[in-house]
Design a binder for these strands. Structure first.
Lengths: 121, 121
DNA sequence: AAGCATACATAAATTCCTTATGTATTACCA
DNA sequence: TGGTAATACATAAGGAATTTATGTATGCTT
């Protein structure tokens, strides 16, 4: 029985993405159909070339909440001696995803208007 | 002495912009040099055509914190019988603003990579 | 054998915001 | 002239979304 320290800690630009995690996860599930938690963290890291990192402490409780809300459903799978928990969007979840992504896109456009204003000519 | 109800309440897509308020304010101060709190709320509303609205409960404590951190400095101005508190970026604040905006832009690009993935060709 | 990656999970603490409330002046309009 | 909305500041309580920290366990590599 090993008592190891988790060396990998997820952070950087921490406060910036409060509230965006849910739509990020829903987006990935929309495109990939079936994903497990760890896979989500890795995919986000890959896509953003290490810029965005999801902490487990944020991810797992969120996934559990989405399951409780009927947005995702799960199935366990045994990989050798290890267990993976796969998440899939439900029918309701797919609709919700569209809404959530539209909201996020609108928000990003608004933010862009402020941060990168167009010249007046 | 009137006991009035504040009818204007700021909200919508609430959770999405946690953490972005600080760079938003710094961005506006960078471009406009001298601004007062209420003016900031109005400008954000105008620029985003009503999409983003800043609550006073978020704005004022944040401005006070930025002042405490030496990022902005203030001067009071009397407009008739009313007082306005003008905020200006300090030298340190201007440097911090560049950093904060770079971080936010990088974050927005990362978010965009996930939400609006480019086709593979 | 040690350390890293994989894979899940939860609890405490923190941060950032909303909601609510308070005070006061000025403008409008019916 | 009286009520409402807009202007302009402020703070406190509460909530939601995260970080930080910790725990458990397997598998791979060196």
């Amino acid at each position: 029985m090993y008592y190891q320290i988790m060396y990998i800690r997820f952070m950087n630009k921490s406060t910036l993405y409060k509230g965006c995690l849910e739509p990020i996860i829903m987006r990935l599930l929309k495109d990939n159909e079936r994903m497990y938690g760890y896979q989500i963290t890795q995919m986000v890291k890959e896509i953003t070339k290490g810029e965005l990192k999801i902490t487990e402490g944020a991810l797992y409780p969120l996934l559990h909440r989405l399951e409780g809300q009927g947005i995702v459903e799960t199935e366990m799978e045994n990989i050798g001696n290890r267990v993976r928990k796969y998440y899939t969007l439900t029918k309701v979840g797919k609709k919700q995803t569209t809404v959530a992504l539209d909201e996020l896109k609108t928000f990003m456009q608004s933010l862009n208007l402020i941060i990168n204003p167009k010249p007046a000519f």
